[in-house]
Amino acid sequence: MTTPTYNRVSLPSNDNVNPYVFCVDLNGQWFAQKGKMIAYYGQIRFESLSAGPLDALVAANFHSPLYARDWIVAQGQGKLLLADRGFDVNSYDLTDGNLTIRAGNLLAFEPGLDLKQSIIPGFLTLIGTGRFIAASNGPVHFVEPPVRVDPQALLGWADCPSPCHHYDHSYVRGVLGTAGSLLGIRGTSGEEHQFDFTGEGTVLMQSSEVVRDTETVLRDLEGQIGMLGAGGLQRLQHFIAQRLAVERD
């Protein structure tokens, strides 16, 4: 029952050490999300994306200004151990493919892949050929469309069209029946909103996690405010004032 002791040589090469720890055999550069490294052997340097010598790499592979501050580049030679909140960790190989994943659950990816922001807030899309590492609360469960998934249980999707929002009829009726659309009316079953997947592809699910999404949503909204003119900004200000008044009651 005693745990095996690993050293630099005996640690697995680009494989799981256990279901919760992944070992990257680094020989060059990887993008890694901050705070996910737990230990390493060897000569490895961590640089922020703004470091001058990384300009070409970032220009070629990293296209998410929203999340740029959450990421670093690990470069050098060695064994790098990655983990995240004790979640299950898995590696995925993409071959000329695309996969979209919850931003907070992506731990690291090879520069062969391109990172872009998904249209769905809080998600990132990887395109190209290469390997990436992602965490999930419990093992990943793969399902095929058609399926409707609770937003907190959605880990990502591959090859299928982006999902749309699905609202239960009772919820829609509530919105129509009252002046509540503005007031952020809440449903009663707790299950009135899902992501609806159709078409060919694979949906990745996890046990629902308490998603610390406020920050992401805020960043997404702030990013979109740039598109508004003065008239739009005034209308938004009016809307926010009304919502604030309701929240204070």
């Binding site: 058609p146 399926v147 707790g190 299950e191 949906v203 699910m205």
Partner: peptide, 9 residues
């Protein structure tokens, strides 16, 4: 339990 549905078909 309310809020415990993860997905359905």
């Amino acid at each position: 339990r309310r809020g415990a549905m993860l997905a359905y078909v």
